[in-house]
Design a protein around this nucleic acid. Structure first.
Length: 579
DNA sequence: GCCGTTTTCGGCCCGACTGTTTTCAGTCG
């Protein structure tokens, strides 16, 4: 079959190591639920982190039997990891899955739920699934349990319903990786003439329900289905017809492949890429011009007209080309002639190192940034009150500054901006005295605690931070974690106003779980003249690769190069920081 | 389970918050 040769090594290994890390974390959670020694549990949690920070070497270390050279990996963990690398399975994991109902893991992931409470629910009320828990909440059965109460019960119910609402949704970041891997392999397969990504993934929707492709092939549908079955990321083929093939990936994301021929390709691709709102908008325009817009193209008098490209179709409708990211609604917002793109990105801000909670050292992060072709990096470890993240007290700040200065002196093609991610304290102050804050090139102000503050107080807190003369930019402005935590109560309209009034930047956090500021707010920020920065919030070298995801969100927000700080050169950024 | 002992057993991260207590247990970052 030659699949091993055709595979994109980078993308698939990334997915595989992700699975490995996920399994180790799950073993830890299952052990905790099974009542294992808490330090043993912690050893597995720690092991998952170690694997994460040595992703690239894990496979070869496992095959050479040298896993135990890593600190934190001993005999026991080495055995489990080796088995996972070689067979993709783990005996320990399998046994624990037999012992602990899968639903208990779902319950454990709800906010406010820990091992103790999940165990209590199972033993006292025989609740081991989300459905049972929801029902019990509705029945008010948790209100009188020890350690629980009305408030706890109401919060749980809300969390379960939030979870249910998105249970069929997936993170764009996950979907894109899988889609890229599938595209890569299909394009190398015999008999496939053209295949393109469509649907909400192409539009860079932050969460998606499925992955869509449009494809032309000389193969019959069964032959194509056979190729798909052979792809490492495809789990099952759900249905096959002459028009559509439906499949499920091993990640659980449905894949829909629309088959067409070469002459219809551009029209079908356009149609399949659009939101239904955007297709409605095109239908209306088409009617006004005497056409009808259907999946097979622009028709006149019942006959499909030729269409060489998406651009040509838009042109016939009297429109300039609308980039897929802007096809979410009907008529798109005003958008610039040229949207920002990855090639324009010169450097980035917001990255962590081993000084605080990052996985890699400053040297490693710098090397990774240079290798990826960036000119500069804005270093921003956590500030002193972020104890949980090993935040920097003044003495360690000075140590970091000394290292940064030395690196800057030795590097001719790269610059490190000296920054910090300062916690916004509950009263809106930043986390250092002014004389320290004055010594940074830039300061990212972020909320990391007191997320439950009421809307008025939270808004005032963040606005106060934006009014601080030492604040440069606002980090992950809404605090949301896609599919798992809602944004905190906040009047974003006022926050954007405050950023505009004080000349502060707002971050577009590229983490696949965040993508925060949301693209809908980005549009408002742009209209109000707020500068944005596309920030990876990198806690490891790999996370620098999430920048293109943030670029996609910036495009969806209708931004051009001029609206994005990190399209500027080192000299321009320096001037921006110290005018 | 891992680590580091002046090596084979004992310790492993903590402070704040929340909702429930009426002095605290559990969760979170």
């Amino acid at each position: 079959m030659g699949l091993g040769i055709n595979r994109s090594p980078f993308i698939l290994n990334a997915m595989e190591s992700k699975q490995l890390i996920k399994t180790l974390k799950e073993i830890a959670a299952l052990m905790a639920l099974a009542g294992e020694n808490q330090f043993k549990v912690r050893a597995f949690e720690n092991g998952a982190r170690v694997v994460e920070s040595h992703k690239a070497q894990i496979e070869s270390l496992a095959k050479q039997g040298r896993l135990e050279t890593l600190s934190g990996i001993g005999k026991g963990l080495a055995e489990v990891i080796t088995e996972l690398v070689l067979t993709g399975k783990s005996t320990v994991h399998g046994e624990l899955r037999q012992l602990i109902p899968a639903g208990m893991l779902d319950i454990l992931r709800l906010p406010g739920m820990g091992v103790k409470r999940v165990q209590l629910l199972a033993t006292e009320l025989d609740i081991t699934t989300l459905g049972e828990l929801e029902y019990a909440c509705v029945e008010n059965r948790l209100a009188n349990m020890k350690g629980m109460g009305q408030k706890q019960q109401a919060r749980l119910l809300e969390a379960i319903r939030y979870r249910k609402r998105f249970s069929s949704h997936f993170l764009l970041g996950d979907a894109l990786k899988i889609a890229d891997a599938i595209l890569y392999t299909l394009r190398k397969s015999d008999g496939i003439q053209r295949v393109e990504l469509a649907g909400s993934v192409r539009r860079y929707k932050e969460v998606v329900r499925n992955i869509n492709f449009v494809l032309t092939t000389t193969l019959d549908p069964q032959g194509l289905a056979e190729i798909l079955t052979g792809l490492p990321s495809i789990d099952t083929i759900a249905s096959v017809s002459g028009e559509v093939i439906n499949a499920i990936t091993d990640f659980g994301i449905p894949v829909r492949i629309r088959l067409t021929d070469n002459s219809h390709f551009p029209a079908v691709w356009l149609y399949e890429s659009n939101s239904s709102n955007h297709n409605e908008y095109l239908k209306q325009l088409a009617r006004e011009k005497g056409y009808s817009w259907r999946q097979t193209g622009l028709h006149r008098n019942g006959k499909p007209g030729p269409a060489d490209s998406e651009e040509a179709i838009y042109q016939k409708l009297g429109l300039r080309f609308i980039p897929p990211e802007l096809r979410e609604e009907g008529e798109p917002d005003l958008f610039p002639d040229s949207l920002v793109n990855q090639e324009m990105i010169q450097g980035f801000f917001h990255c962590h190192t081993t000084y605080s909670d990052g996985v890699h050292t400053l040297d490693q992060m710098v090397n990774a940034a240079r290798k990826a072709g960036y000119q500069y990096m804005g270093l921003s470890d956590h500030s002193q009150s972020a104890y949980y993240a090993n935040g920097l007290k003044t003495d360690r700040l000075e140590e970091q500054w000394a290292q940064t200065d030395a690196l800057n002196a030795s590097l001719t093609d790269f610059h490190i901006f000296r920054g910090i991610e300062s916690d916004i304290l509950p009263d809106g102050r930043l986390d250092y005295e002014d004389d320290i804050l004055a010594q940074f090139d830039f300061v990212i102000a972020s909320v990391h605690n007191h997320m439950g503050m009421d809307r008025v107080k939270q808004t005032a807190r963040i606005i106060k931070a934006l009014e601080n003369p030492y604040t440069t930019m606002l980090g992950h402005p809404t605090g949301r974690l896609l599919l798992s935590r809602e944004e905190y109560a906040l009047d974003m309209d006022k926050v954007i106003d405050a950023a505009a009034a004080n000349g502060k930047i707002i971050e577009i956090n590229c983490s696949p779980q965040r993508l925060d500021l949301d693209w809908r707010w980005i549009r408002l920020a742009r209209r109000r003249g707020v500068m944005l920065a596309i920030n990876p919030d990198a806690h490891s070298m790999e996370m620098i690769d999430s920048i293109p995801l943030g670029v996609g969100i910036a495009r969806k927000g209708g931004l051009a190069a001029e609206h994005v700080l990190n399209t500027r050169s080192t000299a321009e950024v320096t001037a921006y920081f110290k005018p």
